[in-house]
Write a protein that binds this DNA or RNA. Structure first.
Lengths: 110, 110
DNA sequence: TTCGAATATTCCCAATTAGGAATATTCCGA
DNA sequence: TCGGAATATTCCTAATTGGGAATATTCGAA
């Protein structure tokens, strides 16, 4: 159902977690590296990573003393699928919005 | 910053609100109609719509005794922009994931 | 074996909110 | 003008969680 998608959105619904995912976009990161880069505490970094992990958004590789976190970018695919699904029926609405916006602009005589 | 995007994700991070948005995809809905369709209470429907409204995802038209809610589909555009931004650098990772998945499949001798 | 670095977990507090119940508000029709 | 329909808001409770502080755990190096 929509539960899965809602969980995914929930995991993304935090500025720090978004920044984390954007960092992970290019390379793997260690907890300490991320905490330092983001300017947040190590425990908070671990907690946010835990939430991303539970949401299936990252993978973790245990490497001796440290953990390397990597983005599991395929986990974002449901988001794209939903947007495609949504866009299919909103095109008509989009055109209406554009039309109304342009009418408004003409009214204002801009 | 990422605050805006996080707020958007937050508004979408609820199964009932996702169902609401999917209903609004095709047409306007009245609070009572939505509550009835979704099988949730009227107050809860109003509260969820309020959250969607605060997130800029819906517009409301007061029509005598009732309010007609409509999707403001342009509000979902930042989501697409973020995906595009993310995809730009994750392509390499995607190819790696695909490669690893296929290697795994071969190992299993499927 | 001991120490320190890296990380996860727990405890605490404050804020948010989903959901139910009750109530307030607005407006139309009789 | 009054009653009922439609909607929003408030009060309550339980659950979640972000963030800080402290602590537990694990592991490599000396």
């Amino acid at each position: 159902m929509e539960e899965r998608l809602a969980s995914l959105f929930h995991a993304l619904a935090d500025p720090n977690r978004l920044r984390m995912i954007e960092l992970l976009r290019k390379q793997e990161w260690t907890v300490g590296m991320m905490a330092n880069q983001l300017g947040i505490s190590q425990p908070q970094t671990s907690k946010h990573l835990r939430i991303l992990y539970d949401a299936g958004l990252v993978t973790v590789t245990i490497d001796a003393n440290r953990r390397r976190y990597a983005l599991k970018s395929q986990a974002l695919k449901p988001l794209d699928a939903w947007r495609t699904y949504m866009a299919r029926e909103t095109e008509r609405l989009d055109r209406l919005e554009t039309f109304l916006a342009e009418s408004q602009r003409e009214e204002n005589g801009s």
